[in-house]
Design a binder for these strands. Structure first.
Lengths: 107, 107
DNA sequence: GAAAAAATCCACTTTTTTAGTGTATTTTCA
DNA sequence: TGAAAATACACTAAAAAAGTGGATTTTTTC
């Protein structure tokens, strides 16, 4: 099979694992970083994106790098976009500018 | 002076340089990737963020990695958030969970 | 095995951000 | 000097994220 869709790690997965490892409840943690626990739960279960401010609050609370977490979120968003048929169709319809450097006989 | 604000490279700067280097007009390029040229101009002049779909179209047209461009945008967004006083105040108010590993006498 | 706490799920409104359009002004350069 | 390109910005529409509320399910613990 060609072109199988795959989805990279959502930051929620990492955060969830860390909370479990450290025995911190979702409610306690949500209170600590100042967001509603339902929002946190949605992030942990990958139904909401992690955004920069929340990543910063998590960094303060747990010491996990906000850059790392947002890197995961960026990769996740990128991959989800690549799985979007409409956008990929439009992407493929873009005509590349040709590099004017390679002589035809070299091909 | 402590804590001077700085702003990292916006992807628009990179794209703009590339268009100049290759002698491609903004209008032509906007048409090529299928977005209004005013939108493109706003991105090039750092008044709008680059988003994933547009980064993909640019990758198709110029061969510049969408991942690279979005990495720049992510760094830019992160830094801008770090320059936001309200969010940083809130971040600093988050109480860290203490690591329970280091004995007091070791400090 | 019942009660309590924690977690899950999801619908909904508000707020913020981005997409897209229109147009006026300024700059560049042939 | 005038035509094309670039810039600036206001505006509406669409999309995404924040935040709220409540109902159900799962897990823990007594």
């Amino acid at each position: 099979m060609t072109s199988k869709k795959f989805t990279p790690t959502h930051p929620g997965e990492v955060i969830k694992d860390e909370l479990i490892a450290r025995g911190i409840s979702q409610k306690d943690f949500a209170g600590r970083i100042g967001i509603p626990y339902t929002m946190l739960n949605d992030i942990l279960n990958e139904r909401r994106p992690l955004t920069v401010p929340t990543a910063l609050y998590i960094e303060s609370a747990l010491g996990i790098s906000a850059d790392l977490l947002m890197g995961l979120q960026s990769d996740y968003t990128m991959q989800r976009t690549r799985n979007d048929k409409e956008i990929m169709r439009r992407m493929r319809s873009v005509q590349p500018y040709l590099s004017p450097v390679t002589p035809a006989r070299a091909l």
